[in-house]
Design a protein around this nucleic acid. Structure first.
Lengths: 408, 408
DNA sequence: AACCATTTATCTATGGGTTAGATTTAATGT
DNA sequence: ACATTAAATCTAACCCATAGATAAATGGTT
């Protein structure tokens, strides 16, 4: 596949996206403010806004009188345009979140999933249940739904549809999923979702390059370059969790040895602790999220358990080295961190990781690198996959061209 | 730094580049052929060609009569437009290559450099010597030179200018270099150079993503995405040689432990052999290029030395694992290999590496990945850095806009 | 020798994009 | 009432690409 050609239509498409992003992050803005925020001329903003107004994507939300002069009409994304659902299918739970068309969260629902019970029909049924619960709580009718985004772990790609790093039979049968949902569905993987969330609701558009790391059961990277998500030739880019940290190191659940995930995934952190203090009570905690939570509380105590402190130190070192590899290869302007490990351990982990990255990165590459906890609120996977569904919808409306490279 | 805005001028700039690339790879072509090759309309090609004709970049090289009909005017890049010099500054030598404006090689000169004699004045003097020798051999006057490209190892970046992975005092003083040469100079690092060469003279433009690996004393990756070189926030992207292969592994000359370069750089391969057979005569060969050459001859024998075979196997494994990391993170459509290690060992190494990458890459990510020896002839670093100088010249002429993001 | 068919290159009209600057609109202040 | 001010829109100019008409140049045909 050769390089894609850009046409002047794509420029308009990008201008529309820029205006929508500016509006999303500002909440409400006048045309003039949008022009200043996007760098476009007021004339262009006016025509773009009129496109979006006639598509019902934005609304005029009243006039505000300034000191003197013509009053400014305030613009907002039109939440009432419809509903978008984002569904985060994780290893142990499925969470469905309903958003309005301005990407404000309305309601959510979560169902537990038995990790060892992975048949397609079972998972699809649980997913449908989460979707219906969430819609009911949001008071949304099926007709209101503009699109449903589903994030599945593992690489999603055409034509094989889903190629899994961690095998799970359910994802080979997307047709059943579509049939059962009966609404416009887009499927992608969590890394592309968090990157999209960062691009619309976070830092992605303020920097020419950014990587967002998802740390939980699995770990991975969402890579954003020049305002676009790096998907790679097979939509596989960002599987940093399965890049090598240690040759012939710990066995990873993907089958390979020495993957980053085997060290800084939640189970990997537990293994680190078990290596330091095999008899430690936390080392045998069966639930990953409980384990991470307990680790956080242990660290918060006045004089923490040395084994716990050492676990954090080593994890910071592993993570620092793995992030340094990303710096060496991609050299991003900033890195954001997300995922439930970060929500729980961030206060202790992030400062240590910052120090480690500077040490481990080649030369002074990381000297000016910003490493921050993501500013995206809520579940970024659900937010991101819903955003991808919204992008797909906008593309179907003819408002977007090039920027809808969703996987499926 | 935010995302850069694209304007319609950039589209024309890309069209001009596309036409020039098509012309470079075809050697000679009619306007119609260029239209077919680029996917542009004949009208656009005609206007672009007339721009390039009036800039003297292309020439009409005679008419050819077909069977019937109006004869086709053949177009070529105008080599007589001037001369471009590419200078590859390596650890042990400096090579200057003179090209005509159609990027055909005219002459070259090489001077040896004492690795331990790294003062700025010394290196600059050697470089100037190589440049003058090459110009003389090419019969080129200084006035003919449109630009000089200098490739320096290590990251080159603003504002610190050159930030070295492997320290060398000389590169802190680019002003002296510029003063001594007295011609338009661009400086960049070898990874960006090989990527540029791949983009103009190789496979880069036929694929939406491509990585070219340089294997020699140092190792690194040139990353090409959507027809553009990935430079990163500090022009540091592609320093894959200093990403981690083995935590706490072999000490690397960059100071870190376990870098890819410490395993698959020429010195690393020798260390692998020394680990297998400490008394092996090749293990104490003092010159790296001699060592690699001797390894290649040993492998070509009917029944090769088992230590040598084992060295190749392990190197393939290291390289396969390191490439698998690139696949996991970037997921390119193809990978090309270059550098003198590849020229010498490619026949034995590449097939083994291909197998290893498929095994080591997560899931079936590498199943369709093409791994080939680069088709760029000659010294790709010199070719690439000369091409960057040509791009800079075209930019100064007003023929190119966005695509001249050279470092210095 | 005049004319037709054929192939290549250019010209023209159309449509999409952006923008600076003029103009209109709608408030406040005197 | 009228000037002032600020926001939004309109207008004209200038980019870009393309389809389709037109012109150019030749070999073959009558």
């Amino acid at each position: 596949m050769a390089v894609t050609r850009r046409t002047s239509r794509d420029i308009r498409s990008e201008s529309r996206l820029d205006v929508m992003h500016a509006l999303l992050s500002a909440g409400a803005a006048s045309r003039g403010e949008l022009a200043r925020a996007t760098g476009l001329s007021t004339a262009t903003v006016a025509t773009v806004v009129s496109d979006l107004l006639s598509g019902g994507i934005v609304t005029e939300a009243g006039l505000t009188n300034g000191r003197v002069g013509r009053p400014t009409t305030t613009l907002r994304l039109n939440g009432d345009r419809g509903r978008i659902v984002g569904i985060d299918v994780a290893e142990t739970y499925i969470r469905a979140v309903v958003f309005d068309a301005a990407l404000d969260e309305l309601a959510s629902a979560e169902v537990a999933v038995d990790e060892h019970h992975g048949e397609a029909d079972y998972v699809v049924a649980r997913l449908a249940r989460a979707l219906e619960d969430a819609l009911e709580r949001a008071g949304a009718a099926r007709d209101d739904v503009l699109g449903v985004g589903v994030s599945l772990p593992g690489g999603t790609q055409r034509p094989a549809e889903v190629s899994v790093v961690v095998p799970n039979a359910a994802w080979r049968h997307l047709d059943r999923l579509r049939e059962r949902i009966g609404l416009p569905v887009v499927v992608d993987n969590p890394l592309k979702a968090i990157a999209t969330a960062e691009l619309w609701s976070g830092e992605g558009r303020r920097h020419s390059s950014m990587i967002t790391l998802n740390l939980g059961t699995g770990v991975g990277a969402g890579i954003v370059l020049e305002g676009a998500i790096l998907r790679g030739a097979r939509n596989f880019a960002g599987e940093w969790g399965h890049s090598l940290l240690a040759l012939d190191g710990r066995r990873c659940r993907c089958g390979r040895a020495g993957c980053v995930e085997a060290y800084v995934g939640a189970a990997g952190i537990q293994r680190t602790l078990a290596g330091i203090a095999p008899e430690h009570p936390l080392a045998s905690e069966p639930m990953q999220r409980e384990f991470i939570g307990a680790l956080a509380s242990a660290l918060a105590r006045p004089s923490p358990d040395p084994a716990v402190t050492e676990t954090l130190e080593r994890t910071a070192r592993y993570l620092g080295a793995a992030i340094a590899d990303l710096v060496a290869i991609v050299d991003p302007e900033m890195i954001t961190l997300t995922g439930w490990t970060v929500w729980a351990l961030g206060d202790h982990l992030v400062p240590a990781v910052r120090r480690r990255v500077v040490e481990e990165a080649p030369g002074d590459a990381a000297a000016e690198l910003a490493i921050e906890v993501s500013t995206v609120r809520g579940n970024p996977v659900a937010t991101g996959i819903a955003t991808i569904a919204l992008e797909r919808f906008l593309g179907d409306m003819g408002l977007l061209t090039s920027r809808v490279p969703t996987a499926l």
